[in-house]
């Protein structure tokens, strides 16, 4: 049995015929060639596969592609602007050298953006707790936390001073 799945991936509508057991991360990587989303543990613990499903961070290794039928998916490839300008969170990760081997980075960035969406001014503790679903095997958490704090600040709309 195969089923037709239509997704809006990074703003583009795509339709593929997949088996029901195909995971969302498999569809992204193997059917659509979007290999920026990584498979780490494949047991919904490490967070390397985090993408946004209708605006919420999820572990794409623990969603069937068919469950996402009709949904909007954003992957790490969909963050930068068309001209290549990095998303503020990506830029913060680069600025603060928030990666060592880089394997966990796409998932970290996707989780961090979702975190900041519900908590625009997180504390260091909020960031550490909020990223509990993402593991860095290099244990490079210190700079990741610094980058998320800086990225959050960059994502906040500037405070407009009250008119005199």
């Amino acid at each position: 049995m195969s089923v037709s799945v239509t997704l809006t991936v990074n703003g583009r509508s795509v339709t593929r015929s997949v088996e029901p057991r195909t995971l969302l991360v498999q569809m992204l990587r193997e059917h659509l060639g979007l290999t920026g989303t990584h498979v780490g543990c494949d047991t919904s613990q490490c967070g390397a596969c985090v993408v946004h499903l209708d605006g919420r961070s999820v572990k794409a290794c623990t969603v069937f592609a068919v469950q996402a039928d009709g949904a909007s998916v954003t992957t790490i490839e969909g963050l930068a602007a068309a001209d290549g300008t990095l998303h503020p969170m990506q830029a913060a990760f680069r600025e603060h050298h928030a990666l060592q081997c880089g394997f966990c980075t796409p998932g970290m960035v996707m989780s961090a953006i979702d975190l900041v969406k519900t908590n625009p001014a997180p504390t260091e503790r909020d960031v550490r707790v909020g990223l509990e679903g993402n593991l860095c095997r290099c244990t490079g958490y210190h700079n990741i936390v610094k980058a998320v704090l800086a990225g959050a600040e960059a994502m906040r709309p500037p405070v407009v001073p009250a008119a005199e």
Partner: peptide, 9 residues
């Protein structure tokens, strides 16, 4: 429960 991504689903 779980982590943020698990709670989202």
């Amino acid at each position: 429960i779980g982590d943020r991504q698990v709670r989202n689903l």
